[in-house]
Design a protein around this nucleic acid. Structure first.
Length: 463
RNA sequence: GGUACUCUGGCAGAACGGUUAUGCGUGGGCCUGCAAAGCCUAUACAAGGGGGUUCGACUCCCUCGGGUACCUCCA
């Protein structure tokens, strides 16, 4: 698989043996997660599921930043401890992302549980004279890392000229950043240099190296993390290991609303809770995968609606396959299915182009529905197509709503009753049954010979 | 101001130096008791402006312009 690497600005081949090691910068747990977080995490979820579908072992680490000024401020505001805040939002995180059908990472390390690793890391930087102790904390000395700026393509001199006049004269250089902040405000930990808490960037360096070793395969996150977060991580980590940090830097574009980034100040944040309630996981996933991961996508209800229509086609195809009541086809169905499947993989192999992969997926959906409409979707066709369709559904993390066996019996009974009424031309009674089923999100499809049903995902949003 | 990304048909969105992208939408049709769903078919002058390279450019180069992000915390 080729992936665009932010650092070299080139496509690089992902090495998949013996396994793939991925570190994804997760969220700071001080508030609800939003659709922007969802996008980044869904992109990596699909990447991971795809690799695993190829029997590649993936060690997927995603951190929680659970010590941070924003958490502390929030705690103060709500008059609770910082830990209560972070615990609460970690719980919310999992309920959101389980709801989005995101597979749990191999591990979710937290900064607060790795203080000793962080202290060891800092100690070594001090010993190497790359970090220094000052009045307010321990700082990383940017001038000791000549390649500083290589990820974000910034020039140090320009940064300095543009930098604001630093209030903190304890720093030797305005660009230097804290790896340890002295503080008496809880949470704090003792350190050889003074009581305090870790700086933001150090946790990711310490934890990624701890869990994945130096020189792991993919380091990812949102584009907005390139500077300063990832730039600083590189500086710390490569100073520490004297080796290349991550092989590929993969950055996911922002989700915008009316062309603008979501932000608190603009008040245009769409929480995952909100979109999940209104649209459900499948449509959100389709939306998040609808563009190339590196580019921004613009959130709008219209686009979600478009994805809903596409999703209905998927549901239809799936249930046509389940029932497969047609005669056999004279077409080369296996070839068609294999082509879609191959196009799907090819698209993902080429810089993880999910949009093209979705095109291939929808081609299979469309062909299935065409065969059904032409009454040529029989059992043989179904057995050929279903595994391919299911494979793609699994990789994309899409779930067809299923019904329980006992519900199924009820549905079949209702369809039979309706059939009888229709034969007796009691159409208004027959339509009542259809309406009742509709309320259960069960839609009937009247084919020439036989009526089949499909279970539809419930959508709350106004259409 | 600096850096990066970006500008494709009503909307979304790819690929590619020369071939219909695709989807949604829209028009028409098939199916149906009527619907719904699905299918078929038609529909687009597409390429921010201007130059250049080329037999040929949306695709390469230059230039001008627009947008977004980052340069402080941010997925």
């Amino acid at each position: 698989m080729k992936l665009q690497d932010t650092l070299s600005n080139q496509e690089k081949e992902l090495e998949t043996t013996p396994k793939v090691r991925i570190y994804l910068c997760g969220v700071t747990v001080y508030d609800e997660s939003h659709i922007g977080h969802a996008r980044t995490i869904i992109v990596f979820d699909v990447l991971r599921k795809y690799l695993e579908s190829k029997n590649i072992e993936v060690n997927f680490i995603q951190n929680f930043t659970d010590v941070d000024d924003k958490i502390i401020n929030r705690a103060k505001l709500e008059n609770v401890s910082a830990e209560q805040i972070s615990t609460k939002y970690i719980e919310h995180y999992f309920s959101d992302f389980d709801g989005l059908n995101v597979k749990r990472a191999t591990n979710y390390p937290k900064a607060t549980e790795h203080i000793q690793d962080i202290l060891d890391f800092i100690q070594k930087l001090i010993e190497k004279e790359i970090a220094y102790v000052s009045k307010n904390g321990v700082y990383f000395s940017v001038s000791k890392f000549p390649e500083y700026g290589k990820l974000s393509k910034k020039h140090i001199d320009e940064l300095q000229s543009g930098a604001r006049i630093e209030v903190d004269e304890a720093k030797k250089d305005p660009l230097d950043f804290a790896v340890w902040k002295f503080s008496d405000i809880e949470p704090t930990w003792d350190s050889p240099w003074g009581k305090g808490r870790p700086g933001w960037h150090i946790e990711c360096s310490a934890m990624s190296i701890k869990y994945l070793g130096g020189n792991f395969d993919i380091h990812g996150g949102g584009r907005d993390l390139i500077f300063p977060h990832h730039e600083n991580e590189i500086a710390q980590s490569e100073s520490f290991t004297e080796n290349q940090f991550a092989k590929i830097w993969m950055h996911v574009g922002m989700v915008t609303i009316s062309g603008e980034k979501m932000s608190k100040s603009l008040g245009n944040i769409k929480s995952i809770k909100y979109v999940l309630e209104n649209w459900g996981p499948n449509i959100i996933r389709l939306f998040c995968l609808s563009g190339h991961y590196s580019k921004p996508i613009d959130y709008s209800e219209e686009l979600l609606k478009e994805n809903l229509i596409k999703w209905r086609q998927v549901e239809t195809a799936y249930y046509e396959l389940v029932h497969a009541i047609g005669a056999n086809s004279s077409e080369n169905v296996p070839e068609m299915a294999q082509k879609s499947s191959k196009d799907f993989d090819d698209a993902l192999e080429d810089d993880f182009n999910t949009h093209l992969a979705l095109s291939a997926f929808f081609t299979l959906v469309k062909e299935t529905n065409r065969l059904a409409a032409e009454n040529h979707l029989g059992e043989i066709e179904s057995k050929t197509i279903m595994p391919e369709l299911q494979r793609m559904l699994d990789i994309l993390g899409l779930n067809i709503p299923k019904v329980l066996p006992e519900q199924k019996q009820d549905i079949d009974k209702m369809i039979q009753d309706r059939e009888t009424l229709r034969k007796e031309k009691q159409f208004s009674e027959a339509d009542k049954i259809r309406d009742n089923l509709n309320e259960m999100n069960v839609e009937l499809i009247d084919h020439k010979g036989k009526t089949i049903w499909m279970k539809k995902e419930q959508i709350k949003a106004d259409l």
